[in-house]
Design a binder for these strands. Structure first.
Length: 104
DNA sequence: GCATTGACTAGGG
DNA sequence: GCCCTAGCCAATG
């Protein structure tokens, strides 16, 4: 478990239910605004049950990925009150989790 | 230490 | 709105 990875997972846990954050947001909270890609690699494992990795989406509301369970990701988000289109979050800006530091 | 990979992003066609 | 390209980063072999 590398320090960066811990910061990323920690940041993901800070996202409240019913809200979503982008890989870039998480990267920024973890201290590396440009490491959105690396964040994806870390979430790819998604081994920690305490980490709501399904709340992390791509910029602009793109679903992103979820391994072989992208379908599940949509259901989880939908269950939290987030409307998901074919490949996008509906009302993304409205449900996007924002804080002083996550705002670019 | 270099090369490859991937749940990314912004910009252009 | 979709496809491609070029940067960017951490993890892995």
């Amino acid at each position: 478990m590398t320090p960066f990875r811990q910061r990323v997972l920690l940041s993901v846990r800070r996202v409240p239910a019913g809200r979503v954050a982008t890989y870039g947001d998480i990267a920024a909270l973890a201290g590396a605004p440009r490491a959105s890609r690396a964040v994806g690699n870390i979430l790819r494992e998604c081994a920690d049950p305490a980490t709501p990795c399904h709340r992390i989406v791509g910029a602009g509301g793109a679903l992103g990925g979820f391994g072989r369970n992208l379908q599940l990701k949509r259901e989880l988000l939908r269950a939290e009150g987030i409307e998901v289109g074919l490949s996008r979050i509906r009302g993304f800006e409205a449900v996007r989790w924002r804080t002083r530091r996550s705002a670019r």
